[in-house]
Amino acid sequence: MNAYNFAYLDEQTKRMIRRAILKGLAVPGYQVPFASREMPMPYGWGTGGVQVSAAILTPEDRFKVIDQGADDTTNAVSIRKFFERTAGVAVTERTIEASVIQTRHRIPETPLRADQILVYQVPIPEPLRFLEPRETETRKMHSLQEYGLMHVKLYEDISRHGAIATSYAYPVRVAGRYVMDPSPIPKFDNPKLESEAIQLFGAGREQRIYAVPPHTRVVSLDFEDHPFEPTKAEHDCDLCGAADSYLDEVIIDDAGGRMFVCSDADFCRGRREAGQSGAKAGALS
């Protein structure tokens, strides 16, 4: 891969992305259009996150990639390998060791520090898209802060189901201004959007970059009589016993037996290495 530039992208492309990142940080939650490039992996597979990572990585970084909370999911492996090859960066599976973390669908359980950056892969950056398919319209709605439609949608959920029926990609309002899609993270992760770390969001196919600076107010939309609830499976992790981490439900036998394990693989491993254990830890090792 030596024929390619440091971190794959050419310098002019990186500058274009960097300028978009700065505007994104200056207007938190606003989606900055950028001339997304065709990457050597498919659109929808993290090209936005990959372009943002390529624009921010330095040789000193230690890079972590997670998909569904795990480092060993195939697409995470593939993206990590891409940057090992093209940027020569060190990689890690440990959240606390990473300086840049690219993620799909999760925020790590371990609170992030000021010297870390979280890069999200975003499929559909427009939180209003499923209410209004036209970009020309949604852009107008953002400019006028016309977010009534979103509240109507959430309220319709309540009248039909008795509760807000959005469980992931749950919309948030950033710094009291823009309604933002936090990418398809489970709503359990929404409170972690208020962080010490810089959070950058890249949508390659949709050509948008947006950002949440550290210590920025991020409020999940809700109603007084139906407050926002970050929910998870009502279990403890069967491997490490954690009661406060997001869980994957795994079918373990033909009879449909289940076990619940931490989605954040590093968090779970860390706890087990520290001697914690869950209900099924012994039976499985």
């Binding site: 971190a7 500058r15 000021a114 810089i198």
Partner: peptide, 19 residues
């Protein structure tokens, strides 16, 4: 070494604008 030096410089600038 523009690719590497500009990457480092950008990180400093980004951090300054973000904080």
């Amino acid at each position: 070494d523009a690719p590497v030096e500009s990457a480092r410089a950008f990180r400093t600038a980004m951090s300054a604008l973000a904080r």
